[in-house]
């Protein structure tokens, strides 16, 4: 399981940048990033190397945020790789709320994706049973 940090960002020029500036100033390395938006605000979702440091820095800078547990999945970087994972989740009856790709592992053979699902435990067990490799917070930090 991976701790994803979700940050409230206003939808106006410079708002997102003021958040990334906080991360940059604190030397935080991002592993994955996704942005969900509505007409007047967005939620920036980030996976970082140091969750504690990031949440502390964001709080001090006045950003509203929350931490959500998501699944990190390593999938073969070949045609059908994602399909295989989604089939496992579908067969287990787990709903995917959203997912996004990883900025890239450095090893080459695997691709990584972040899944936010309705039931983490159920999804994790189903993936493990079908031999799909998952990555945890420690591995993410080390990538």
């Amino acid at each position: 399981m991976i701790n994803q940090i979700s940050v409230f960002v206003e939808n106006r020029p410079g708002a997102l940048r003021s958040m990334t500036a906080v991360l940059a100033e604190n030397g935080i390395d991002m592993r994955a990033f996704s942005l969900a938006e509505t007409s007047d605000f967005g939620i920036a979702r980030v996976i970082v190397d140091d969750v504690y440091k990031t949440t502390t820095a964001l709080r001090d800078a006045g950003f509203v945020h929350s931490v959500t547990q998501v699944l990190g999945v390593a999938l073969s970087d070949v045609p059908g790789g994602l399909d295989k994972v989604l089939r496992v989740l579908a067969e287990a009856g787990v709903n995917v709320e959203y997912m996004y790709a990883f900025l890239g592992g450095k090893k080459g053979e695997d691709a990584y994706m972040i899944f936010r699902v309705a039931d983490n435990a159920k999804a994790s067990a189903a993936l493990a049973a079908k031999g799909v490799r998952q990555v945890g917070q420690d591995e993410i930090a080390g990538l």
Binding site: Q4, F8, A36, T38, F41, I43, V64, H65, S66, R116
Partner: peptide, 15 residues
């Protein structure tokens, strides 16, 4: 103003 108590990762809930 959004508050920490009100914020959630779930867009649907915020909407």
């Amino acid at each position: 103003e959004m508050t920490p108590e009100m914020f959630t990762d779930n867009l649907g809930e915020i909407n």
